[in-house]
């Protein structure tokens, strides 16, 4: 029952990192192309090249941040509660008892759907509980949803 035991932690699918990487890459390329061309037209080739390089640098930094963030997400199903840990700058660990769960929400946005991923969110009566797990494979999300619902029903406690 220790938090530090690394073997018990489950992580979001590597697909989440692929999705984030693709998002950053697309945004960077589009921005670089647009701004680079505008600066090229207005101030000449050097300005255009510098803009593209700066934007590429920004994109790489962003990617590095997202990579670290992706690695920080992890969750663990314990006997009575679900643990969700996330964050690099602000590190958060939530312990949500199954009995307090009001409902489980599974969402999949358009981009998430392209990568066959979905987000599972656990709702409790406290708005701050903050138990969200993004980037789960469809099967894993369904398994987690069913398991949480089942546990939540069997352990449900009133207000």
């Amino acid at each position: 029952m220790s938090f530090s035991d690394e073997r018990d932690w489950l992580r979001p699918s590597p697909g989440l990192w692929r999705m984030r990487r693709t998002e950053v890459a697309i945004v960077t390329v589009v921005l670089a192309a647009f701004l680079g061309l505008s600066f090229l037209g207005a101030m000449g080739p050097v300005a255009g090249l510098v803009t593209v390089l700066v934007l590429a640098g920004l994109g790489a930094t962003m990617g590095w941040f997202l990579r670290r963030r992706f690695r920080a997400w992890r969750y663990q199903e314990r006997h009575d509660d679900l643990l969700v840990a996330r964050g690099v700058m602000v590190q958060r660990l939530s312990v949500v008892p199954y009995g307090r769960m009001q409902f489980v929400e599974v969402t999949a946005g358009p981009i998430e759907r392209l990568f066959n991923l979905s987000t599972v969110k656990l709702h409790t009566a406290a708005a701050a509980s903050d138990a969200r797990i993004p980037g789960l494979e469809k099967a894993e999300a369904a398994r987690l949803r069913d398991r949480l619902t089942e546990l939540g029903e069997s352990m449900a406690a009133g207000m």
Partner: peptide, 12 residues
């Protein structure tokens, strides 16, 4: 008995 969740938060 009213606890909804327990959280540990560490800021920069």
């Amino acid at each position: 008995e009213k606890t909804q969740s327990v959280r540990r938060v560490q800021g920069p």
